[in-house]
Simulated scan of single mutants.
Amino acid sequence: MLATNLLEFKKGLTELNKVSDKDPILVEEYIDGQQYLAEIIVYKGKLTIVCILEQDVLRKKRFIVLGYQFPANLSSDQYADLEIAINTIIKEIGLENGSCHLEFRYVNKEWKLIEINPRISGGAMNKIIYHGTGINYVKEIVKLHLGEEPLIETNRTECVYVRYVTVEKKGVLLKVTGKNRAKKHVGVKEVYVKPRKGSILTPPLSMGDRYAYVLATALSQEEAKQFALQALKEIKFIIEPL
């Protein structure tokens, strides 16, 4: 929750305490800027950056990532600085074997770590990496944990864009239309719809409240995004309000 003044801060604390007055509340500085995600894997101390993506973040009641673009549009200097930052962080936490994803914002020519998780990013991430690079990243993570050396070799390079669907009002899902039409759009590789008829849908308060996505590929980042957004218009959630 973003608080830009003392009144909003107090209101946010009150709202969070209504959910649970026992759980701790994390307060942190808000850093404004483009957000990026890095997927990395470490085997016997050797770090490999699998991919860097740009994220499109919905900034309403909560911060929800709605879009992922691969590859990220970074200059050579930005990438070099990010590589240094990632290596510094991984060395600091002492990771010798494992995978994780890190989220950053780039502000005033500096990389600021927003979040780090000891797993692959959820949702469509493995699909994004596969369609963009040919790497089955989950398979390589499993190999790592079986004691085998992961093989992170790109055998194709395509631009990928994924866009998620959320809803504006709470209600009971009656039906979803447009999935098959979305699949027929140029560049579309994946269309996924999560909820079934009768599910209760709500406006997004967490990443779990993203109910569908379209994944598209193209030769350019702009085309991949355009293809995904055009196909996304086909998907409609028919909801009976609560």
Rank of each mutant, 00 (worst) to 15 (best):
A216Q: 03
N180S: 13
E148R: 14
R210W: 04
V214C: 01
L151V: 15
P203C: 08
N155K: 08
R181S: 10
T202K: 14
V186A: 07
Q226A: 11
R181Y: 02
K179I: 15
G171C: 10
V165I: 12
K194V: 10
V176S: 08
K179Y: 03
G208V: 11
I152T: 08
G198I: 00
Q221G: 01
K183L: 11
E223P: 02
Y161T: 03
A218T: 04
N155W: 00
A216C: 00
E190T: 13
L205P: 01
H185G: 02
C159D: 04
H185V: 07
E223Y: 08
E153F: 08
K225M: 12
H185S: 07
N155T: 05
H185T: 06
K189Y: 09
V172P: 02
V191R: 07
L215C: 05
K197D: 07
G198V: 00
Q226V: 06
S199P: 01
V160R: 01
A212P: 04
L219P: 01
P195G: 12
Y192K: 15
V160S: 02
E153A: 05
T166A: 05
K184S: 15
V186M: 10
K169S: 13
R163A: 00
M207P: 03
K194L: 14
R196T: 13
I152K: 06
R156P: 02
V172M: 14
I200M: 08
E158L: 10
K184T: 15
M207V: 08
A212Y: 02
V214R: 00
G198N: 00
K184V: 01
N180V: 04
R210Y: 07
T177K: 15
V172H: 06
V160N: 04
V162E: 11
S199N: 13
L215H: 02
K194T: 07
Y213K: 03
V167L: 03
A182C: 11
K170H: 07
V214N: 00
G147V: 13
P203F: 11
G187Q: 06
A224V: 12
G171E: 09
L173P: 05
V162P: 01
S199E: 09
V193H: 09
A212E: 05
S220V: 07
Y192N: 15
Y161C: 03
E148H: 14
V172N: 13
V172E: 14
T154S: 06
L219V: 04
V167N: 05
V160F: 09
R163L: 04
Y161W: 08
S220N: 12
L173T: 13
K179F: 05
D209F: 11
P195Y: 10
L219N: 13
V162W: 08
L205E: 14
R156D: 00
K225Y: 03
T202Y: 14
P150L: 10
K179P: 01
Y192G: 03
R210G: 05
K179R: 15
V172S: 11
A224P: 07
E148V: 10
A218H: 06
V193W: 09
K184M: 14
Y213E: 02
S220P: 08
V176Y: 11
L201Q: 04
Y192T: 15
E222V: 12
V188M: 08
T157I: 12
K225R: 15
T202N: 09
A218M: 06
L151R: 14
